[in-house]
Design a protein around this nucleic acid. Structure first.
Lengths: 337, 337
DNA sequence: ATAGGTTGTCGAAGCGCTTCGACTAGGAGT
DNA sequence: ACTCCTAGTCGAAGCGCTTCGACAACCTAT
């Protein structure tokens, strides 16, 4: 294992000079810099992470806390994680992967040990246990998701309120007057995950404004659950012609069951989904949808965090504006007979 | 930030004693141990990760290298990653998340800097660029996936050869004589990812033994690609009654298209999938399938790695035996008319 | 010429921990 | 009574780096 001292000796300079070449914190003459850089190359030197962390009290590591739960749609989490890792590397940081298993203790451990310089908690609940700890530490953090009280916190999320409103508007403009919302599994609402409730708020308030009737039904994924849910919806509101789906594993079942019950999409009923673009495009009917900007969320979170680590960041809530893409699953409401 | 020295002073012992209480590497009297432990509790002490890494040249971090590609099925990757993180924590290790972006340099950087004690490369290609580096370092590693040459390496993977054989056997026993294999996207085969080819080998060799005709077609996911592929298959082999699918995003399209073309599952054609159980159970027809044991793979990889780190491990290839679960998508071949 | 700045480099201290050797006390064996 | 071990503790060295203050060399403005 090559050390700084060896590089220094090889280049004929002192250790501190090599350090300054590496960090750029003091000016170094061009000649010296080149000699040092050549020595680094030739010896294949890599600074020792532990020593660096100890001396500088910066680990250059960001902790990403992902949920353990499997009822959250995994591909979105994965996409965010990859975007976080990639963006972090671009800024010279590595990413530590923490699962929800440890709970709030993970925050204590990581900040206490100096393992990570900063944190990105995902899957934030409205009244998350980690919030007091995050507020009480000097390590910066950026949440992905929105808790109830954001004072003193920096958050990134899709603007789910606007998303709900946007979906409803789209269907209302097409003439739909009875709209059903297929939501996430009941557990998601019980846990008070912010995004599900905020979507609903957006849908509801806009529906009131536009005089549209709304029926909300949480739904577990899969065919059986969807079948029951759908039957109930048509039972209760036979005039339903519009659907907003916010549950990835209910999308395909919904389409299949509509088909099966003789309702054509988009001729008889329209469907708007809130889901990753890939899923919207691979579904059996190309879905009009609002995309979950997973990559964007991961990227922005890291950028905000890096700004904070460099002392220029400030607490703010970044809500990404939703974008609705019209595809083949939505069309004018059928003429009322 | 509380330090070892402060704990020592608080407990009225020397720093080294506290260190030995923490590591258990020397015997400590019960009284002293308790006093030290109480001080640790009261002061809320967490050992500094950098200092520890520097002094012991062990970071207690495992690097997990995940692929950037999006054509691999994300949920499986995610499930593995979570299992790795959870198991690692149970053994006192943290997990560093590395993406494929850096390529082989990531291996150099991590080993060179002592950032991680060991590595788990995922999505291993048959002739992976990282292999020489892994063989040439003294940091242990466990691959998830199987390269062409495994000498000097430890690997964990599903036994895809046996998986192929098992699928074929199941359909053959049911009387199917013409079987089509819907494979991964062509890119996966071009990249020489081991698992796809090994599955095919297993299918082919068993088909020869059992006198079954096999037709293999790679397929991009989604409805359009599947539609074209399916038409070609029935065109070339109208007598096809059995399908083996190894492509998560082709599963639902296949079922829909079969339905659409008037073929009932399992009455007219049988389908066996190689995919995560969740997907098999949520599909529009509950699929007879061989599960991808993602959690098991992640867990085993970490356990092998920890054994190696403790000096008791040995190079070996662990192939998890496939398990076929019969569900509603496979049945006796229709009587030939 | 002289005071005052720059610029480039070095030496040394110290980050918080692990670990080795040394030391003390008490118990076992003779 | 005397040696020999073992268990329990301590002091000090050192892991590889960053960073501060010092200093020499040179430039610039008086």
């Amino acid at each position: 294992m090559v050390t700084l001292a060896e590089v220094a000796q090889h280049a004929g300079v002192s250790a501190s000079t090599v350090s300054y070449v590496l960090s750029g914190k003091r000016s170094i003459s061009a000649g010296t810099r080149q000699r040092v850089e050549r020595s680094i190359q030739e010896l294949g030197y890599h600074p020792n992470a532990g020593a660096r962390a100890l001396a500088s009290s910066r680990s250059n590591i960001i902790a990403l806390m992902i949920p353990l739960r499997t009822d959250m749609y995994m591909p979105v989490m994965m996409e965010i994680a990859i975007a976080v890792a990639t963006t972090a590397r671009a800024h010279g940081y590595d990413v530590l992967l923490l699962t929800g298993e440890e709970g709030p203790d993970a925050v204590r451990r990581v900040t206490g040990s100096g393992l990570a310089d900063a944190m990105i908690p995902m899957d934030v609940e409205l009244d998350d246990e980690r919030l007091p700890l995050l507020r009480g530490t000097d390590r910066p953090s950026v949440l992905i998701g929105l808790p109830a009280d954001t004072t003193g916190l920096t958050c990134v999320d899709l603007d789910f309120g606007a998303t709900g409103a946007l979906c409803l508007e789209h269907l209302a403009k097409l003439g739909h007057r009875d709209i059903a919302v297929i939501g996430e599994a009941p557990g998601v609402y019980e846990r008070h995950t912010g995004f599900a409730e905020r979507t609903l708020d957006g849908l509801r308030s806009r529906s009131r404004e536009l005089g549209v009737r709304l029926l909300h039904r949480p739904c577990e994924g899969g065919y059986d659950a969807m079948s029951v849910t759908l039957a109930r919806i048509f039972d209760e509101r036979p005039s339903t012609t519009g659907f907003v789906v916010q549950n990835e594993s209910a999308v395909e079942p919904l389409l299949a069951l509509l088909r099966q019950s003789g309702r054509a999409v988009p001729e008889d009923v329209s469907v708007v989904a809130i889901c990753p673009d890939q899923l919207a495009m691979q579904a059996s009917v190309r879905l009009t949808s609002v995309a979950i900007p997973a990559q964007e969320m991961g990227r922005r979170a890291v950028e905000l965090l890096v700004a904070k680590l460099e002392g220029q960041g400030t607490d703010e809530v970044v809500l990404l504006p939703p974008e609705l893409t019209v595809r083949a699953s939505s069309g004018p409401a059928p003429a009322t007979g």
